[in-house]
Design a protein around this nucleic acid. Structure first.
Lengths: 144, 144
DNA sequence: TTAATATCGGATAAAATTATCCGAAATATA
DNA sequence: TATATTTCGGATAATTTTATCCGATATTAA
């Protein structure tokens, strides 16, 4: 479904979101430890997310990553997925055809219209604040 | 969603199904050409599908691949996907956690229950005969 | 029985993804 | 200002996935 990179990216974003609720900036090491991911590789992903303006970063002592608290309810998991894996999951043909549409559909086309819709809607309606709150309540986890 | 291998595998199976409707056995070359896939790699996938008893193969002149006509309505695309990509798409955690369940769910867990269900049901209800008929009518395509 | 044909199966190779390393740049604080 | 800290960014490496090659094996038909 999602690439490994994307899974790390989502988890990292959610952990940052959890801490950003309270204006706490978190370091690369803290993130990698919290989501159980390879440190250096996670750095690359965070760099990308920063470039895509999903998170913000700050160098130096007391530096790290954060998300403007007021933006938490505006940012969705779908945005994170699109930033990392692109939108082929939401738009692409399930069988990988370059041209697949109503006129010349692949055998899975009709079936996948609603699957992609549900996926798209689900991820677009999951905002970071909502998820951060549940993480903070211990209702959900990012490890194991 | 599906690996490249799995996409080739599904397309190959569907092409074989289309021809098997009429008891026509098809060769590796014909398959690769029909679904626009690398010949040698397709051979490997067909080998796997044969080992998994989804298709049957025959060596020598007039050899090739086929599916017993009477089995067409019994075989589903879900079976093909499971044979190639395994069932992590249907059972695995969206964020890749080893343990992710009601007791300790990842943040996406609840959302993905219904997505996985729909995916599972959709693929389990797509049998090869049905798809083969549509292919034969030219209502769907495996290329482009 | 021989020759031609097609898949099987094992060894490689290429490409893409995942992962590491390290010096450079920026920033906080002493 | 000097130093310690932390991310940035480019080069490189390891792993996995995708892809190729080729001799072996089975099968058909002449």
């Amino acid at each position: 479904m999602f690439s490994k990179t994307c899974k790390y990216g989502i988890k990292a974003t959610l952990f940052i979101a959890q801490k950003s609720q309270f204006d706490e900036r978190v370091s690369l090491k803290e993130i990698a430890s919290a989501i159980d991911s390879p440190v250096a590789f996670t750095a690359k992903i965070l760099q990308l997310l920063a470039k895509e303006n999903i998170i913000s970063s700050r160098k130096g002592p007391k530096g790290g990553f954060e998300i403007d608290k007021v933006l938490l309810p505006k940012i969705t998991i779908k945005q994170v997925v699109k930033a990392i894996d692109g939108d082929s999951l939401f738009n692409g043909c399930a069988l990988g055809l370059y041209e697949c549409n109503e006129k010349a559909p692949c055998p899975m086309h009709d079936n996948f219209v609603s699957i992609r819709e549900q996926l798209s809607e689900t991820l677009a309606s999951s905002n970071l604040l909502e998820v951060a709150i549940n993480l903070n309540l211990g209702l959900t986890v990012l490890k194991r």
